[in-house]
């Protein structure tokens, strides 16, 4: 791609990523929020592809597409008002949060703009992807395997946490709110 086209696509992707990211928290419908987040991720994946990490960008988009569908289902299952039929404002400490977000943005952007980025660009994308493949199954195989085992442990943990019955009985057992009177339980 030529330079102008790259600049144009980068501008479009950045706009989509940021606007969709803001819309995630400004929409009434939680399902729509999930799809806005997916749009934001897809645009970020596009920027990553533009930067030359084609494999990572596509993996990010694929992973997020699956994740957002799960997210939409979870919202419909558990959350109130998932369809956005009523206006929804579910925030606490909004002012503090806005200030914290703006401060985080300004601080990180300031560091990014004030620092000097050394210019040692990556080789062409095909070579970069081939390098990554060799690295994954070569020097960094331990990292790769550790990530895999971590994901396996996460699966086991997630099932253990979400299961209705644990090893020692019902998951809800012993989790009821204690009574208001301290003697209530003793006398019962």
């Amino acid at each position: 791609m030529t330079g102008a086209l790259i600049d144009l696509s980068f501008a479009a992707f950045s706009l989509v990523a940021i606007v969709a990211g803001v819309r995630v928290f400004r929409t009434d419908s939680m399902v729509r929020a999930a799809f806005y987040l997916l749009a934001s991720f897809a645009a970020a994946g596009g920027i990553i592809v533009l930067l030359g990490a084609e494999f990572l960008g596509m993996v990010l988009i694929l992973m997020m597409a699956g994740e957002m569908l799960v997210m939409a289902i979870v919202m419909v299952m558990y959350m109130m008002n998932p369809a956005g039929l009523n206006p929804m404002v579910m925030v606490h400490q909004p002012r503090t949060a806005v200030v914290a977000g703006v401060v985080a943005f300004l601080a990180i952007a300031g560091v990014g703009l004030s620092g000097e980025v050394p210019s040692r660009p990556a080789p062409n994308p095909a070579a970069a992807t081939a390098d990554l493949g060799r690295e994954l199954l070569g020097n960094s195989m331990l990292v790769f395997q550790t990530a895999g085992v971590t994901l396996l442990a996460t699966m086991v943990g997630a099932i253990a946490v979400a299961a209705p019955r644990g090893r020692y009985g019902d998951a809800a057992e012993g989790s009821e709110e204690p009574g208001l009177q301290p003697d209530e339980e003793a006398s019962a």
């Binding site: 928290f25 977000g101 943005f105």
Partner: peptide, 10 residues
């Protein structure tokens, strides 16, 4: 940085 800031807000 903008994405990170939006995330902090959320």
């Amino acid at each position: 940085a903008a994405l990170f800031g939006i995330g902090v807000f959320g």
